[in-house]
């Protein structure tokens, strides 16, 4: 359940000079593994996620989810977008039950779970609020809740906390750690924040740009369950030093 494999995946964009967004990317993610894709902006990490989500088609290579080729978006791969991407005319509640509703699930199958998940992400008492009435952090909580309610077998998160202030980002990282500790879903997490990648992931894949490819796989062996206190532990600093060295050496190549 939830295994992901990219095999020699390439993505080119047409233009005056062809953009090689991704070239021959190989990546295997095991069931229940939390993988962070780390790299500078424009290295194709979001493209990789969009391909797996089924939002875009590959130019070459194969992507498989649970052994089957990916062809279109679906609720088995829940996507959390950078700016939450909530439907602004729907209340928090209606945003969260949008998935089960369009999938024509019977109410009793999801209503209790939706309530439970909204409590889990700390949005009790905000069911009737509109997205415009929420802060960025709260909006992203809704973005996570609406995905969790579908019980996806993988979570694809595209810089979900990138637009938040530092304090809120820490809160959200802790929230995600707690949620993941309970659910243990496969996660592909795109970020350009080194701390975030180490704190959350079992493995950090460092990407480089033009052509976008994965240049390093670094297993993060920090003990679970983790918390934001780990950000200052000696082991954490060691991982950070190693990844920064990695990134610097690839920067030097360009």
């Amino acid at each position: 359940m939830g295994s992901i494999s990219f095999q020699r995946v390439s993505k080119y964009y047409p233009g005056k000079s062809i953009v090689r967004a991704l070239e021959n990317v190989d990546l295997k993610i095991d069931e229940g593994e939390f993988v962070a894709l780390l790299g500078p902006s424009g290295c194709g990490k979001s493209t990789l996620l969009n391909l797996l989500a089924g939002f875009e088609n590959t130019s070459g290579g194969d992507i498989a989810f649970e052994g089957f080729p990916v062809s279109k978006p679906g609720p088995d791969r829940g996507v959390v977008f950078q700016e939450a991407g909530l439907l602004p005319w729907l209340t928090v509640w209606n945003n969260v039950v949008f998935g089960p509703k369009v999938q024509k699930k019977p109410r009793e199958d999801y209503e209790a779970r939706a309530r439970e998940i909204l409590t889990l992400v700390g949005l009790d008492g905000f069911h009737d609020a509109l997205p415009a009435q929420l802060s960025g952090g709260m909006r992203q909580r809704v973005g996570i809740a609406r995905v969790l309610v579908m019980q996806p077998r993988a979570l694809l998160m595209d810089e979900p906390f990138g637009a938040l202030d530092a304090q809120t980002r820490l809160n959200m990282q802790q929230l995600l750690l707690d949620v993941w500790q309970r659910l243990r879903t496969t996660v592909l997490f795109v970020t350009h924040d080194i701390d975030e990648a180490i704190l959350l992931a079992d493995r950090v894949c460092v990407m480089s740009a033009r052509p976008g490819r994965i240049v390093e796989n670094i297993p993060i062996t920090l003990r679970r369950p983790r918390s934001i206190d780990d950000l200052t532990s000696p082991e954490f600093i060691q991982f950070k030093a190693r990844i920064m060295k990695e990134l610097r050496s690839h920067l030097a190549e360009h």
């Binding site: 989500a53 939002f55 978006p73 679906g74 609720p75 977008f81 991407g85 439907l87 998935g99 369009v102």
Partner: peptide, 26 residues
């Protein structure tokens, strides 16, 4: 917004759902 359409598709919305529940209100 492209994200709204992608979000709806990701949540399992059919083409008709996308038209009626996303494109029309937007």
């Amino acid at each position: 917004e492209k994200t709204w359409i992608r979000a709806a598709q990701m949540m399992g919305a059919s083409r008709l759902d996308v038209l009626l529940r996303v494109v029309l209100p937007a």
